[in-house]
Design a protein around this nucleic acid. Structure first.
Lengths: 217, 217
DNA sequence: CATAATAGTGCTCATTTGTTTACTGCTAAA
DNA sequence: TTTAGCAGTAAACAAATGAGCACTATTATG
């Protein structure tokens, strides 16, 4: 975490940013001084030194206008990405490989890639992910082998929804049905049989399928 | 339109861009000269003057490192969007409403919105668009009413591909088949009959379906 | 009260940096 | 052959610029 700035230091930091934005190059000590009515370059320089020490700026010594901004922390890199995602209307959603019991779903090692999804389909806070479908048990619901299903774990699931559940260490896509305190996972393919779950406690629902993406060829 | 640059000028322009990117401030004449082994600052200065005259740079006289880039034209604003699209791996694809004969497909008035598509699926040069599917004639191909099909007009179409064609002033999604100099558009639903096109000349193929996106709820 | 951190003045000095002039050499077009 | 555009050297100069010192003043903290 970066250190707290004084009001004056904050003002100056903002000015440098703006100046660079407008002019394409950073200001000199005297240009900063002029703006804030600091007549001595030394006064300005000490502010800059403080900003360097506190982790905001880099200064190349003996170079004119040698001011640059310290690389953003990873946190604010992420903030930046979110901002771009908002502006351009998309979200990056990780594509998961196998989903094994025990390991956190979104663990680094499970992520095989990512796909971009239009933000009109989901909130950025939803923490969605994508799974590649194996098998043909859902063909009558228009979900084919190789399709990517977009999954959200933060939506209510009601009867008839398509969900992803963890069955014997493997993720499965099925239609969800809760009746008489029993959960049934219904395939949408007459060649398969429904799966009945009696022990509701042990049932591991991963999330609800909110979208499907298929790519041909 | 900006004027043509010489090789040398191009090199130098690129270097300035990179330098500014890396250091946060533009280079001095001597820093440019060092890079290109131009021992005289005057040699460098004349390159910069040329870049100013040709509309690429602005130079603040008597200011150190006073180099900035001329404001982008609208054309290069688009280039900028493309760059962001490249960096973040997506494309914006327009969603078309009705597709009527006569009117250019991508005419402003046809565009109902846009959707973001992962760039691993298409090249940016492909000029794709999306269409909302009406009817259920392709359910056995996993294409349902309301799905968005992503269409490219720049791909070769072979038998078995799913295409969008213009039939009687309306766009239709069907499987394509060319046999015995006759085109047949095959629905993927036993309740519908194939459409046979005898007059190949009059056949208006809009494009090939390269992807399908469905959103649930 | 002493101490440290912050903020600033006024000044000098050494470098850095852009500007300019005079001159050389190459190539393509008129 | 002349002219124009491009590319570069060498040198000198003035202005722009960062660095540093000595000194003052305010404010918060223990």
């Amino acid at each position: 975490m970066k250190k707290q700035l004084t009001d004056r230091q904050e003002e100056i930091l903002v000015f440098i940013k703006q100046f660079r934005e407008e002019n394409g190059y950073p200001p000199t000590l005297r240009e900063i001084g002029k703006k804030f009515e600091i007549s001595s370059t030394f006064g300005v320089k000490r502010h800059l030194d403080a900003l360097v020490k506190k982790g905001y700026l880099n200064i190349e010594s003996n170079a004119s206008r040698g001011i640059s901004f310290q690389r953003d922390t990873e946190e604010s890199q992420e903030t930046k990405l979110f901002k771009i995602e908002d502006d351009y209307g998309f979200h990056k959603v990780p594509i998961l490989g196998r989903v094994a019991a025990g390991v956190p779903i979104l663990a680094e090692e499970n992520i095989e890639g990512s796909i971009v999804v239009d933000s009109s389909f989901m909130k950025k806070s939803e923490n969605c992910f994508a799974l590649k479908v194996k098998g043909d048990s859902m063909i009558n619901a228009g979900i084919f082998e190789g399709d990517l299903v977009i999954v959200s774990s933060k939506r209510d699931v009601v009867n008839g929804d398509i969900v992803v559940a963890l069955l014997e260490d493997d993720a499965t896509v099925k239609t969800y049905e809760l009746k008489n305190k029993m959960i049934r996972l219904l395939p949408q393919n007459p060649n398969y049989n429904p799966i009945e779950i009696i022990d509701i406690e042990s049932f591991k629902l991963i999330g609800k399928v909110i979208g499907i993406v298929r790519w041909l060829n």
